[in-house]
Design a binder for these strands. Structure first.
Lengths: 335, 335
DNA sequence: CTGTTAGCGCATTCAC
DNA sequence: GTGAATGCGCTAACAG
């Protein structure tokens, strides 16, 4: 591996001049510049980013923590984060925490040791945040998709209440009066928000969301199936179901269909997330879409500003979900 | 950020002693050791891995190139790679090339500049490999899931021919005599291998795979749909279909079902990959499973050996796929 | 056992 | 414009 010295020697200049050429800083005579460029190409020289980082005290590295890359939601988020970060000249260390607090802790430590310029957290546990808090003044960070209880934490989040509300309004407008909600784990704040938004959407139409129509589940497809089966078991079916994510909605649809019900003729289903699969299943799934790309873009912009030390006035950004109407929702059958 | 100097000062020892404690190298008196440890904790000192990497000429960083993290196959692979690599003390820079040759090129360059200890390629283009070849003697690498035409390239790959063969044998054993294959892009070698394996599996049963029953597609769900519709259009339906991945198999199932056909009563379908969705769709999908975890494990082991400079006798490893029989396959209806 | 020192590769003063 | 010298934080070689 050639170093800057080798280039300098070959070009017959000092390493300072080579550095100036590489970084386009300072004045260099055209002649020496071309000699340096020639040497660089001849040696196939690549600057050592470790050394540069050590010297400059910045690395153009950003760490991204996600709970599960196999989850389509986070795969998507990760993809966009990476795309926008690399467009701004950052490399990304992607850390899959697997929802494991110890892994989170470890990764945070590793990222700090590797001197990342910033960190983007997505849905980490409060414990990790606590652990991380000792670094909070040392390394810029942005929290994505999850609100922290920490004041002033720079955050990009979805208006989950609105998401639930949109689902409710859509179903009410179709004429549904008997609705159910399959939630994610209610210990997660965003689930509570989605539920409350849904409840409010019904309330403004004069409909009560009865407790027996709230089924708590786990964001997984099988959880959705089980939730639907539980409803079937009561014999008291709603005419429409709102699930807190698309996977559970798929499970709900499958369970109902396996019992001979037709979607949406017998029961309408609304999901949440708008993962690509929504449009390919049949019937295609009406869902509350999360603007992942926008969230990633905002998160990256925010982090970049923080890293560059720019003054950031708005540290908490809330993005709006929107409804994508497909074929899984329809007016209820006339009773 | 405290440095080793601060620790040394606080503990009243030299930086060499601190280094010895950190790395557990050399002998240090118990007393000084505990003083150092105390200082480290007090200052919340974290070693600077840039400096260490620069000094040691190794970083414990590994770069992983995948074509598309949103694709469940690669998300899975990436997850396992990360898991096994971090278990061995490596951090991972995950690069999503988005099937873009320029991004591949860029990433390779970045990884080299960041002095990664090794690289794991998954399904990169031949062009990138060409570009990379200038580094091949400088940085250890392993090719996953795709064979290169380069001699001696360390590789972990699937026996794709066997995969096709297994699918064929299963269907033939069920009694099918009229079979079709929905392939991925045939310019990709592994698709040709899967197809040939399938053909051979039929051949040993005395069945010819007729050309009109080979439909080339694109690995996507919609591609599968279209392929099925094309078959329907000919009016000459097979009794079983083998698709080169699960997503296309889902598309095939959907298209057939939307035309009133029943899976597996009217038509059996076999997929490839064994993504988690296989067991949750209905009917659940019989498929040729790729042992992603094993591939990742072998790839990481191989790379680690290479990095450590161990002598590696077997540089090309071929892993075997296996059949997972679910509900999408059944004997054909009696003609 | 322990401390001093050199140097990894680079950007950045500061003289000239 | 240009080069010599310094130091980022660390490990390793060496001397004691």
């Amino acid at each position: 591996m050639p170093s800057i010295k080798d280039v300098a020697k070959l070009a017959g200049v000092s390493i300072a001049t080579v550095s100036r050429v590489i970084n386009n800083s300072g004045k260099v005579s055209p002649e020496k510049r071309s000699r340096v460029i020639e040497a660089i190409e001849k040696l196939n020289y690549q600057p050592n980013l470790l050394a540069r980082g050590l010297r400059q005290q910045k690395t153009r590295l950003v760490g991204c923590l996600v709970p599960d890359v196999e989850n389509l939601v986070f795969a998507r988020l990760a993809k966009y984060l990476e795309e926008f970060l690399s467009a701004r000249g950052y490399s990304v260390i992607l850390c899959n925490t697997n929802n494991d607090k110890n892994k989170e802790r470890n990764y945070l430590s590793v990222l700090v040791q590797r001197k990342v310029d910033g960190i983007i957290f997505s849905r980490v546990s409060d414990e990790s945040i606590l652990f991380m808090s000792s670094y909070f003044r040392q390394v810029p960070y942005v929290v994505l998709d999850r609100t922290l209880e920490i004041e002033f934490a720079p955050t990009v989040k979805l208006d989950n209440f609105l998401g639930g509300f949109l689902a409710a309004r859509h179903l009410v407008e179709l004429g549904h009066r008997c609705l159910a909600c399959v939630t994610g784990p209610l210990k997660i704040r965003l689930c509570r928000e989605r539920l409350e938004g849904f409840r409010e959407g019904l309330k403004v139409a004069g409909i009560d969301l009865r407790n027996e129509y709230i089924v708590e589940s786990d964001f997984k497809i099988n959880g959705g199936k089980e939730a639907a089966l539980r409803m079937l078991a009561t014999g008291n079916l709603p005419t429409a179901v709102f699930a807190h994510n698309d996977m559970m909605a798929f499970g709900v649809m499958q369970a109902f269909r396996s019992e001979g019900l037709d979607i949406p003729r017998d029961i309408s289903v609304v999901g949440f997330d708008n993962i690509p699969l929504c449009e390919v299943v049949s019937p295609s799934l009406t869902t509350v879409a999360q603007p992942f790309e926008e969230m990633a873009r905002l998160g990256v912009e925010l982090l970049d500003s923080l890293i560059r030390g720019e003054k950031v006035t708005q540290k908490v950004m809330v993005v709006k979900p929107y409804l994508v109407i497909r074929s899984s929702t329809a007016p209820p059958r006339v009773a």
